[in-house]
């Protein structure tokens, strides 16, 4: 679409082009015109074509579906915003939103703090620094399902290792899936296990771009390493922190695999929906109950929720350095 507009604009503004247009167009001239004007767009087009097919079209089609009572292999009637009004009054939907936000907060805040400290430690002169740096990335290359399966076993009620360790200090066995708080913590640990190292490596890469003389100057002025960390490192990492916060927000709000595995593959997220995330809610409505319209509406609300919370987080993090 932008291809036509741009090309047309150019030809109109260049007088030489107008003159050339007056001449009878030979096939060769057309070819050379295509080569010069169209080829660049042609070469960048694969991304945009794929994005249009797999990004823009589903987005708009989902919006269209969300305005219908859309039953798979059944009736499809246009009902306007009814799905949205019903959804906003659906306590199951809000339960899934609360779960998602709670798991996101419980997982992300410690995760990013830990990643920051880890990156700072890895930035120091250490023996076997490369091995250490590589090893924090190791959890990332394990499959998310494998991580979830192992953790679900660790959190087993009857024979899980976590309950066994707790029993050593006299704590009664916890049924981790049974209460909201316990299931949120369990799922948050899975997320952190997998993503802390990833964020640490990103912070580490950013830390290495900070000029050393800043630290030297601070050291001469008598600033302690801790003061240097909060006064130099963190403010200069702000763009990177904003990036990781936004990526974590998107990841946190679409959290799916871990809670599903934790709940034995069911989309209900526990007997009373203790850890049903919004993504699970959408899949349950769409693919278990075959209410495509309702699920599509939930998908759009999730999209808006991610936008809003990414903006909120962006604002919060941007204010981070200023107060110091």
């Amino acid at each position: 679409m932008s291809l036509d507009v741009d090309a047309g604009h150019r030809t109109r503004t260049l007088p030489s082009n107008q003159r050339r247009h007056a001449r009878p167009p030979g096939p060769r001239r057309l070819l050379s015109w295509l080569d010069l004007r169209a080829a660049p767009y042609f070469f960048v087009s694969p991304y945009f074509v794929l994005f249009a097919i797999f990004g823009v079209f589903p987005l708009i089609f989902t919006l269209w579906v969300s305005l219908h009572d859309w039953q798979l292999a059944g009736d499809k009637t246009f009902i306007g915003m009814e799905n949205y009004t019903e959804l906003l009054a659906d306590d199951k939907f809000w339960n899934s939103v609360v779960n998602t936000v709670a798991i996101f907060v419980i997982a992300t805040v410690p995760q990013l703090l830990l990643a920051l400290l880890l990156a700072n430690a890895l930035n120091k002169r250490l023996r076997g620094r490369l091995i250490l740096r590589l090893s924090v990335l190791a959890p990332l290359v394990t499959s998310v399902v494998a991580v979830a399966v192992v953790f679900t076993q660790l959190y087993g009620r009857d024979y899980g290792m976590v309950n066994w360790l707790l029993s050593l200090v006299g704590v009664e066995p916890i049924h981790w899936q049974n209460a909201s708080w316990s299931s949120w913590i369990a799922i948050a640990t899975m997320v952190d296990w997998r993503w802390t190292g990833y964020n640490a490596i990103i912070y580490l890469a950013a830390m290495q771009t900070i000029p050393k003389d800043l630290y030297e100057a601070a050291a001469i002025d008598g600033a302690s390493p801790r003061k240097q960390f909060w006064g130099i490192t963190v403010p200069l990492l702000k763009p990177t922190i904003i990036f990781t916060v936004i990526v974590s927000t998107i990841g946190g709000f679409t959290l799916f695999a871990e809670p599903v595995m934790f709940g034995s593959g069911l989309m209900t997220g526990g007997t009373t929906g203790q850890f049903q995330t919004v993504a699970m809610f959408i899949v349950k409505e769409g693919f278990r109950d075959f209410q495509y319209g309702y699920a599509a509406a939930a998908a759009w609300i999730l999209f808006l929720l991610i936008l809003i919370s990414a903006l909120i987080n962006f604002a919060l993090v941007r204010g981070l350095g200023r107060s110091r």
Partner: peptide, 24 residues
């Protein structure tokens, strides 16, 4: 009955698969 091994159903797949059925 055991939905145990998880197929990673992306949320976006909803729209895609809904798109697969055009004719009424």
């Amino acid at each position: 009955r055991r939905g145990r091994l998880l197929a990673a159903v992306a949320v976006g797949a909803l729209a895609l698969s809904a798109a697969a059925c055009g004719s009424d």
